[in-house]
Each structure stands twice: as structure tokens, then as C-alpha cells.
Amino acid sequence: MEFNCRQKTANCPIFAPVNLFSSVKSILVKDLIIEFRNRYVLGGILLYVFSSVLVIYFALQYNNSIQELSPVVWSVLFWLIILFSSVNAIANSFFREPEGRFFYYYWLISPQALILAKLCYNFIFTLGLSLLTFGIFSLMVNDPVVNYPVFLITIVLGGTGYSFLFTTMSAIASRAGNNATLMAVLGFPLVIPLIIFLTKLSAAAIASPGFTEETVKNIWMLLAFNIVQPTLALILFPYIWRD
């Protein structure tokens, strides 16, 4: 079974060959519509973010007053909440699909189209999640950010990094028997470099206005990670996906 999907669709008279862009778009739209219709999944994730912020809020209560957070601790807590909620959210993207539907996709589109659609979808989702977490976090705990441009770049790059990494890991884990623990085991060691740069950048966004040389260097590093990850995912996903 070594021939690729395009040949397969050509062999099969029912389905006309579909181009990459339109198939990415249709999967993306389908996923968004499902997400919107299945509002309890979305609601579950929102509740997850809200309750973890609440847990941190109450954990910080000491002597009837909220403890002051240093920039580093603030950004560590912030990125950890996003980490755990995005792992939970992204785990759904492959686990949710029943086995049969993958078989159906397999006949319809190329694996690159599927992984691109999933990457885009998870990117949008994680970005929304990070902004939402920031909103709730600044509402309940505090908002020490002074440098919004750097912080927004960090959120975008962080959301991208998380979503790309965990999409690939979720694809791998879904092939290994839909095991959510496995996804954490596989993904967490690889997320460490990202976390290091994200905490550095957001602590910098809290501490000082303007772009320092250090900040620019860290942004380039994150960009490098964010380019390498989807490239690898695109190359490797056909092998992961094939049965």
C-alpha cells in the first residue's frame, strides 16, 4: 500500500482530485462549525481556563489579601495555565474524530491538507484561548503588563508554538490508541524550550517598555521553533497517518 493519495483519488472515479487550498479550507470550516455546534466542548475548555485561574487566585490568598506576584512568577503561572488548557483542547482535535472518518479523509484529501487544516484550526483555537486566559487572568489576579506590543507578539508566537507542537503530538498519540497521558509524556519534554523563551519574553514585557536586543533575539528564537515545527509536521504526517 505504498502509493500516495493523489494517485488513489485518481484511481477512484467517484472523487475528483481536490486542490490543497480548497481542501484545507473545507476541513477548517468543518472543524469550526463542529466546534460551534458542539458548544459543550468549547464551554468545557472555557470553564477549564476559568477554574484554573480561580484555583490560582484562591491559592494566592494569604492573610486575607492577594499576594503580589513577581513578573517571572506571573508569566510562569500564565503560560502553565495556557499549556494545560491547550493540551486538553488540542487533544480533542484528533481524538474526537472516529476511526472511520480518518478512512474517509484518506480517500478524499492529501495528508498535508489534513495536517495543515488541523494546524490552522488549533492555531486559531489556542490563540483565542491565550487571549481569553490573559483576559481572565488580568481581571482576577492582576495585569502587570506595560509593554503590550511585545506581549502580544509573545502570545501569538506562544500560541503558535503550543498549537503546532501539540497538534503533531496529538496526531502521534491518536495513532497509539487515543491515550491522553501519552500526549503529555511525548509533548512536555519538547515544550520546555518554548516555555523558557515564553517566560523570558513575557517577563520582559512586564518589566520594561520598548524592544531590547535580548527581546529581539528571543523573538527570533521562537520564530525559528515555529517554522521548524510545522515543516517537520508536514514532512512526517503522511507517515504517521498512513495505515
Binding site: T168, I172, R175, A176, G177, N179, L182, V185, L186, P189, L190, P193, F225, V228, Q229, L232, A233, L236, F237, Y239, I240, R242, D243
Partner: peptide, 26 residues
């Protein structure tokens, strides 16, 4: 751990190879 959790040999080999390449580059 990943290798241990997949029983099918060919699937295991392919997915483990993909993870190996991905993780080593990162």
C-alpha cells in the same frame, strides 16, 4: 513509552520513527 503503547509492528515502527525525527530536531 510510545513504542510500548503501540502493538501493531509496522504502525509502531513508522510512528516511532516520525517521533524520533521530530523530537531530535527540536
Amino acid at each position: 513509552v510510545l513504542r510500548g503503547s503501540i502493538t501493531d509492528e509496522i504502525k509502531r515502527a513508522r510512528i516511532a520513527a516520525a517521533y524520533n525525527i521530530f523530537s531530535l530536531v527540536i
